[in-house]
């Protein structure tokens, strides 16, 4: 059976420390000035002392209905066998349609390869070796879980079945494979 790789970001456990950001940069040799992944600590929201921060993971959402793939004129952006939105940099002509089309603003032109770039769950590096993506492997507080949602026994399936989760901008119909467990602070209880 094909895999359906998903990632879950638990905003209760995330502390916004950027360990993921740095690990991603190191593993995937992401050049200075561009980024595949960051966590934005937004806020605080609310009235003191009942304040809360929002820990917002900004990275490719691995949409199942990906606008970047739809607009790509050359087929450089495509879904691989396991559904990971992937870039064939040899086919990329640098038109930047995908950069414009991405509702999450997470695609960028790689200044070294001159092709579009973004998170691909470390498929060329760690996933190929059977390891978790870099961000997952270093996360100090275990806020990230990665795995195959088609496998009912996987950690991700268990989490999705037992915790309230949401997807960013789901109203656009992009069907992201990044799920977020909302923070209990600020009113949403899980």
């Amino acid at each position: 059976m094909k895999k359906r790789y998903v990632m879950i970001h638990d905003e209760n456990r995330c502390i916004g420390c950027q360990a993921c950001n740095v690990a991603c940069r190191s593993e995937n040799s992401v050049p200075e000035g561009v980024t595949r992944l960051q966590v934005r600590v937004e806020g605080p929201f609310g009235e003191a002392p009942d304040l809360h921060f929002k820990y917002h993971r900004v990275s490719c959402q691995q949409c199942e209905n990906a606008p970047c793939v739809t607009v790509c004129p050359t087929g450089a952006a495509y879904f691989d066998d396991n559904g990971i939105v992937t870039i064939n940099k040899d086919k990329c002509v640098g038109c930047m349609y995908c950069v414009a089309a991405c509702p999450y603003k997470v695609r960028f032109m790689n200044p070294e390869t001159k092709a579009a770039d973004k998170c691909n769950f470390c498929k060329d590096t760690r996933l190929a070796r059977g390891e978790d993506p870099a961000c997952v492997s270093v996360c100090p507080t275990d806020a990230l879980t990665f795995g195959d949602a088609n496998d009912v026994n996987s950690e991700v399936s268990k989490l999705l079945n037992t915790k309230i989760s949401y997807q960013d901008k789901s109203h656009l119909g992009t069907q992201p494979r990044i799920y977020r467990i909302p923070t209990k602070r600020g009113g949403i209880q899980s």
């Binding site: 360990a19 740095v22 690990a23 190191s26 040799s29 270093v138 996360c139 100090p140």
Partner: peptide, 22 residues
């Protein structure tokens, strides 16, 4: 490049590393 992670032998550290360490 050097990829730095935590050492899983040290259980309470969980094989993890922070941004500075990474």
């Amino acid at each position: 490049n050097v990829y730095i992670s935590g050492n899983k032998e040290a259980k309470s550290f969980g094989g993890k590393v922070c941004a500075r360490g990474g």
